[in-house]
């Protein structure tokens, strides 16, 4: 099995390790870099608990090898906020968009790219947009509301905080 030196910029910090070719990106993030906010929920690319952003696109980090991410920029839940809370994190808290919290980091990462692409999504667009992420606790209503809250806050920062 080939070994590779990978160098991945995660949340603005360069991480460099020698890894086996088969090391999954999610294990690299969690175990080599100790960033345990990214979770694992399945083996079949179904649940989205491991969602991270690689070079601007949200992907399932259980379905990419760490070696594939070498030289790329990866963003995880730990890097979302630039001091304080990101509007999406705030939305999840404000609107009760989480219960057990296990799917939450993946949902937030997915929502972040969703809003970057479509700053004013309809409810239906949000539901389709997060359809690669499973949540077992919330029934999704309040996740949708959380993303709507964030969209509003990002689009009109003053109105939402008033």
């Amino acid at each position: 099995m080939s070994q590779h030196n990978v160098s991945i910029n995660i949340n603005g910090t360069e991480h460099s390790h020698d890894v086996d070719a088969r090391l999954l990106l999610v294990h690299y993030i969690r175990e080599n870099c100790d960033l345990t906010g990214t979770h694992i929920g399945c083996d079949s690319t179904s649940c989205g608990a491991c969602t991270v952003i690689v070079d601007g696109r949200a992907i399932k980090s259980c379905t990419m090898f760490a070696v594939q991410a070498s030289g790329k920029e990866v963003e995880t839940i730990e890097g979302v906020a630039d001091g304080g809370l990101h509007p999406i994190q705030e939305g999840f808290w404000e609107m009760h968009g989480l219960q057990c919290g296990y799917c939450t980091p993946g949902m937030i990462m997915c929502a972040k790219t969703l809003l970057e692409k479509n700053p004013d999504p309809t409810e239906e667009e949000i539901r389709w947009g997060i359809s690669g992420n499973l949540c077992r606790c919330t029934g999704y209503n309040k996740i949708v509301e959380a993303i709507q809250y964030a969209a509003e806050k990002i689009n009109q920062p003053e109105a939402a905080s008033a």
Binding site: T45, A58, S131
Partner: peptide, 9 residues
């Protein structure tokens, strides 16, 4: 096809 996250990759 699949879901939005899968389609990104």
């Amino acid at each position: 096809i699949a879901d939005p996250l899968v389609r990104n990759q």
